[in-house]
Simulated scan of single mutants.
Amino acid sequence: MASQWQNLLKNIGEWQGSFTKFSPEGQQLEDVPSILILEGLQDNKALRLTLNRFPQDKPPYNFTSEFSSLNRSMLVFEDGAFSKGSMQWSPVSEFGGEFGLKTDNERLRLVQLYTGESQLQSITLMREKLAGTSPPQRPILTPEQLIGEWRGEATTLYRDWSSDRMATHLKIETEGRDRLSQTLSFGTGSAVKTLRSTAKIEGSRLHFEDSEQPYQILLLPNGASSNCPTTIAPRKRFVLELGWLVRPELRLRLIRSYSDRGEWVHSTLVREEKQR
């Protein structure tokens, strides 16, 4: 198995895109063009990250950082996907997570930020492509694109860098004009677990109110989706998640899971295909 550092090296390149900020209700607040360059140093024993952002009517923003190790709050998967963020939730401090999904010449990143009062503050979506490439343009994700039966595999990385894999089965169905249900099964044999939930559809927002920790899925441009609670309640397990419909029949999901004590326990990458 490749090391965490070797996995991160798969993100080397010049990534051209934008930072698009949304309110918790899905209203676009700003869209800022960006160029992020990740380059290897010392025969890839170190990395330099250079971020340039070009806001309208403001001076360009530039940030440069060099590093040779990973933060303990970050886990990187074999394909270069990564999750990082707060290791512990607290009801009196700011909290958040960042996600990155990757294909050969595209990346989709997402940042979810919470206030010190545990309220979702903002969501920032970053759509990036390698310089010199022309990936396909995808519309805003719709509930209709999610309807169906999805089968795949989940890879979970733990904080000690151990891992496991399991099969997944997700079935999403409509319930009337403004509701949908999803049934998620994962595991094998007698260890299979099944979770069922229902959501109310309100435009680009799916409200799941019947789970242990109520949450919303916000449908975003480029086939993206943001899944997280709008308010984090004490003593309840919860997840933060980025989804990406790469193709009509292929969806990636990256999940950061927290215990009922607010402690980050692991990150999971799901690759699932729609069944015909």
Rank of each mutant, 00 (worst) to 15 (best):
G85M: 04
T50Q: 13
F54Q: 03
A2I: 07
D104L: 13
N62D: 04
R256A: 05
L70H: 00
S185P: 04
S204V: 08
P221H: 09
S69Y: 09
L146V: 06
Q216M: 10
E175G: 02
D57K: 10
S73K: 03
S225Y: 08
N44I: 07
N105H: 15
P33G: 10
S34M: 14
E263R: 14
L130C: 04
V32Q: 05
Q4A: 09
L120T: 03
Y61M: 10
L157V: 07
E98V: 13
E249W: 05
E249R: 12
A199L: 09
R256P: 00
G17A: 06
S190N: 09
R138W: 07
Q112I: 15
S18T: 10
S65A: 10
Q28Y: 10
E202F: 06
V270N: 02
S93P: 03
S259E: 06
P60T: 03
L242H: 02
S73D: 14
E98S: 14
G262W: 01
R48I: 06
R72K: 13
A224S: 10
R107P: 02
Q28H: 07
F95A: 00
Q112D: 07
T155L: 14
R151C: 12
Q27V: 15
F82G: 01
L254S: 01
G26L: 10
W161Y: 13
R48F: 08
Q6C: 05
L252C: 03
F238N: 01
Q27E: 15
Q145N: 12
D164G: 09
Q182V: 01
G96H: 00
W89D: 02
T103E: 13
S134I: 09
R205T: 11
Y258W: 05
P143F: 03
T50D: 05
G96I: 05
Y158S: 12
D210W: 08
Y258A: 00
R177P: 04
F186P: 00
H207W: 13
R251M: 09
K102W: 00
L36N: 05
M87P: 04
S185Y: 03
P59T: 03
G80V: 04
R151S: 11
S267A: 13
S259D: 11
E39Q: 15
K10F: 06
S181Q: 12
R109Q: 14
N222Y: 12
W264V: 01
V76R: 00
D160G: 07
G96M: 06
L269A: 01
L108F: 01
F63H: 12
Q6T: 11
